[in-house]
């Protein structure tokens, strides 16, 4: 991946804190630091993978980046235009360039709308197509995602999970977006169906030149589909690098543990692999630890880690790490 190009999306020091209210007057008594200062670029035509365990803030990054949530702080630019400063009207225009595919293909489609009207909805809002043009476009979209165009008048419950995900993809493609945020698009699907959807997403990317932010907690799948990967933990990016660097030369102890925990579907290799078993659970984001937020589980934490938050820095070209000892842990 040539990262000398101008990024399509630039995210700088993005924060999203959800207020916690309490007491008689429902005053704010604290905040969930769901996203706490993340920075990354996404280049045109690439897939940036975003991985991390439940609750680490992946969905919140996606939604805040698209300004579906108001950011607490930070900057997001799409094609050099700052999204964080746009008014409602301009935002709506630019949003058609960014679409989202959701985790739950059951909840994200209105059960009372036909497939045709679901896919047509963004066209109704953003375009002035004639009836005939719209009809043709819907047929074309269903065909692109591998659904029988004769199904336009059917309802979501008549489809399987994988087919529903295809409907969601067709809807996301309707306005010819540049960027699609795929938020766990395959987690609810069976293994053999997951591969169908991933192959489709890859084919569409090639044919339509799409750019993806691909969010998931399945590391092997993210590595399969991504050009570069970012690893999140408790609201922050711990490491970001090319997919091979992340796998072969990870420098953050969390990435190393996460990689080693991924099951290998091969008994010989599994027997040879060395597991780094992390102790304990992920801390509550209401109350993140002082210093490095990984320090409660980190196998190499030293005194400094409990005092000072490590800087997120470019250790090697295009390889970013937030650990005081990144230079030493280089594997």
């Amino acid at each position: 991946m040539n990262t000398e190009k101008t990024p399509l999306v630039s995210v700088r020091n993005l924060k999203k804190h959800f207020p916690i209210t309490g007491g008689f007057l429902q005053n704010q008594v604290g905040a969930v630091k769901a996203v706490d200062g993340v920075s990354f670029d996404i280049y045109p035509g690439e897939t940036l993978g975003l991985v991390g365990e439940t609750g680490c803030g992946k969905t919140t990054v996606g939604r805040t980046m698209m300004r579906l949530y108001e950011p607490t702080a930070g900057e997001v630019e799409l094609n050099g235009v700052s999204l964080t400063e746009l008014g409602e009207k301009d935002l709506r225009k630019i949003r058609s360039k960014m679409q989202m595919i959701f985790q739950d293909p059951y909840a994200s489609l209105n059960p009372r709308m036909t497939v045709g009207s679901i896919v047509a909805a963004p066209l109704d809002v953003h375009t002035k197509l004639s009836k005939k043009e719209k009809h043709d476009r819907i047929q074309e979209l269903l065909d692109i995602v591998g659904l029988n165009p004769d199904f336009v008048n059917r309802y979501p419950h008549e489809f399987s999970g994988g087919q529903r995900q295809r409907i969601g993809i067709a809807r996301a493609l309707a306005l010819e977006p540049e960027l699609i945020v795929c938020d766990e698009p395959i987690s609810s699907l069976d293994v053999s169906i997951q591969a169908q959807v991933v192959n489709l997403l890859e084919k569409l990317q090639k044919e339509l030149g799409l750019t993806y932010l691909f969010i998931a907690h399945d590391l092997s799948m993210v590595r399969h589909i991504s050009d570069r990967m970012a690893v999140m933990y408790l609201g922050k990016i711990m490491e970001l690098a090319g997919r091979d660097e992340i796998y072969l030369k990870s420098m953050h102890p969390y990435t190393q543990a996460l990689m080693s925990a991924v099951p290998i579907p091969d008994p010989d290799l599994a027997a040879k692999s060395k597991r780094i078993i992390l102790d304990g659970d992920i801390p509550n984001p209401k109350n993140p630890p002082m210093g490095c937020n990984f320090n409660t589980r980190c196998p190499i934490a030293k005194e400094r880690c409990f005092i000072e938050d490590p800087e997120y820095r470019e250790i090697e070209k295009n390889h970013w790490v937030a650990c005081h000892f990144a230079e030493e842990t280089r594997s």
Partner: peptide, 16 residues
């Protein structure tokens, strides 16, 4: 259908 961490990524998955 399973991508594997130890394999060359990028090849098309064999889906059913």
């Amino acid at each position: 259908s399973l991508p594997r961490l130890d394999e060359d990524p990028g090849a098309e998955l064999l889906s059913v």
